[in-house]
Structures are given as structure tokens and as C-alpha cells.
Amino acid sequence: MNIGLTVATYLFVSRLVPSETLAQWGPAQEGYFPFVLIGMAMNGAMLSALTGLTHSLQLQKAFGMLKPLLLGRSQPEAVLLFSSLYPLARAGVDLMVYLLVGWVVGGVSLTGANVPAAVVTACLAIVAFGSLGIVTAALSLLFHCGTPLLWAIGSASWLLGGVLYPQPLLPRPLRWAAQLFPFTHAIQGVRAALLDGASLGDLIFPILVLTGFSLIMIPLGVLAFNIGLSRARVRGTLAEC
């Protein structure tokens, strides 16, 4: 429902943006609506992957379920892994729903898309943001302050990631800053695969960035989560929201 309303809103907004205006800032053969649809879809999916585990932890704390969960015979890492799976799957489904609604409501056709390249890039992006989500969940255990970080990342992705406008529109320092964030590469990669039919070979740079980011963040996230659990056991804050 939420996705449908969001897509419909941007369908009307897109009528204010002529294709020629967008073309000044980069390749945009299909017009503004497909451009913004893919930006919104990727942003929504990445934020679902990013926030899912923290929200799940907060819900478990609110229900008092975190302690019973950790008393199970599974290792905390396994609990963490399985708790992360739903947000990741949800992110993938959100992405597909965005594209489906865009096709139904806005008639977006992706006939020239390179679907395997888009799927690989999107999956890597979701895993990369899921791993960042593990780190923010660990911070919420350690300092009860994971949520401000989520807001910061979410806001940065809107500003820098090229969700609503092409990045060349940004001043040069912000363009440089945007290159430091994985969502920039994820959105550009999926957009190129779906709108321009870019192949896996064409997308090697964003794929490498997203893979490298995941390889660093997953072990870091698990380590931070274990430190968070240990500290919560010392401080007695395991059940605090």
C-alpha cells in the first residue's frame, strides 16, 4: 500500500520534469519516472535491509523476548543471522514490488534491461546494507543509539545517493562524498543495468565496491554484536529498550 502510494506520487511529480531537463545531467532516454522509480526502489530496499535487524531487536526487547531467545541452544551469531534473513528477504520483495507497481501504474517497460546484472547488483547492495544493519544493531545494544545512525544513513542516501536526481547535479565536494557511500554505487549500478542494459562487465566497479564493503562489514558487524552482548551482560542492559 505504502509503496503503491509512493510510486503514484512520483508518477505525478515526474510529469513536471521533462526528459530534456534530465538529459542535461546524464543519459535518460526513458524519462524521469523510470529514473526515480529505480532510485526509490533501491533506496527502499536498502533501507529495509539496513533497519530491519535493529527494528527486530527493538521489538524483541519490547516483548521481552531477547533474553529467552539468547537462552536457546543456538549460538547468538546464529540468532543474529536468522534474525537478519527476514529483513533481507523483505528488502528483495520491496524492490520487486516497486518495479511491479511502476510497471502497472506508470507503464515502465524494462525490455532492454540486463536482468542478471541488475539482480546481482541489487542482491549485493541488499547484503551490504544488511551487514551495515548488523553494525547499527550492535550499536543499539552497546549504546542504545542505533536509531540516530540509521536516520543519518537514510538521510545521506536521499541527499547523496542519486535517488531523486542525477548526481552530476550535486556540487563537486558532495559528488566526492557520495562516492564514499555504497548506496551511490548500488543505485547507479542497478539503474544502469535496468535502463541502459549494462552488463556485469560494465558494472564491475560497483560490484567490487559492494562486495568489498560486505566482506568488511559482515565480520565487523558480528564482532560488534558479540561485544555488544558481552557489555550488555556486564551492565545489565540486555532487556533495556
Binding site: 516483548f63 521481552g64 523476548m65 533474553k67 529467552p68 531467545l69 537462552l71 536457546g72 541452544r73 543456538s74 540468532v79
Partner: peptide
Amino acid sequence: YCPGGAVGFDPRLTGKRNLEFFALLGD
């Protein structure tokens, strides 16, 4: 372990489903 106040269940699920979940978690 029974915590004070018998908390730690998902209120949206039935008691049986809650127990099945914890049984699976108990391997």
C-alpha cells in the same frame, strides 16, 4: 528460566505457536 512477570512471548502469536518457536530454538 521463567523471568519475573512471565514476559518474553510474542503477543501476536498463540501460546502454542510461541512454544513451538522456542522448541525449535532449543534444537
